[in-house]
């Protein structure tokens, strides 16, 4: 579905990503793990068009997408749920969700999609008229995920959805991610809860200092000494 080859990304003169290569196949959950500052968010931003890679190519469903503007990439079916939620804080819950359905293809079906999202997150339905900035942290994360689904994506890239949530809500987030996959959405997931992530994901990539250090199926990674030491604290 998505193929990233030899991507290098810079901030000005500073190189942050070096020759990143990986693939995501249809219907899988691929986890991307790495320490703070490893370049995970930078990689997601490069995929969704917020940043431009200095070299390398990104192909989505057979089409080159590196160099396209973010709005063109959403239209092709990639939804990026950004780190830190990035809600439109002065807009209501409902309006935030509507913004998620901004592209033509999704706008036509926004009412049905909204119903579906409300089924997923009943909390949001109760709070539809409330301003986003007055939601609790957990509700805000639900809204960020709901908004990301409103564009009816084929691939969802999600950056640290459980950040700042209580353990019970973290469980809920993982449940939601699993059910998204059951609905046929492919997922690229960044998470700090490495153990749980490796349990729900099919495969994982480990990013270290802007380079791809390891890649494999989750069971193997859970057994790897390096992963156990560096990321699971064992």
């Amino acid at each position: 579905m998505l193929e990233v080859s030899n991507i290098s990304t810079f901030y000005g003169q500073i190189q942050v990503l070096w020759d990143i290569c990986f693939k995501i196949s249809d219907g899988e959950i691929l986890a991307l793990i790495g320490a703070n500052g490893a370049g995970k968010t930078t990689l997601l931003n490069t995929i969704s068009g917020v940043l431009r890679p200095n070299s390398g190519t990104i192909t989505f469903l057979g089409q080159r997408i590196d160099g396209l503007a973010p709005h063109a990439i959403v239209e092709l079916g990639i939804s990026h749920i950004p780190e830190g939620r990035k809600l439109f804080s002065d807009m209501s819950v409902q309006e935030n969700l509507e913004m998620g359905a901004y592209i033509d293809r999704a706008w036509k079906h926004r009412r049905e999609t909204l119903e579906k999202v409300f089924e997923f997150f009943p909390r949001l339905k109760e709070r539809a008229g409330q301003l986003a900035r007055t939601l609790s942290g957990g509700e805000q994360q639900m809204l960020a995920m709901g908004r990301g689904l409103m564009s009816r994506p084929k691939l969802c890239i999600i950056d640290e959805p459980s950040n700042g949530l209580a353990p019970k809500l973290v469980q809920e987030v993982f449940q939601i991610i699993k059910s998204l996959r059951e609905q046929g959405i492919t997922i690229l997931l960044i998470e700090q809860n490495v153990r749980q992530t490796l349990e729900v994901a099919d495969r994982a990539c480990v990013l270290e200092n802007g380079r791809m250090a390891l890649e494999g199926c989750c069971e193997d990674l859970l057994k790897s000494d390096h992963v156990r030491k560096a990321y699971l604290g064992l």
Binding site: P82, K86, M91, Y102, R147
Partner: peptide, 17 residues
Amino acid sequence: RAAGQDPSTAGLMGVNI
């Protein structure tokens, strides 16, 4: 309004900023 609050995120929603 979305672009006024956060242009980059509005772009992620599909707005041609």
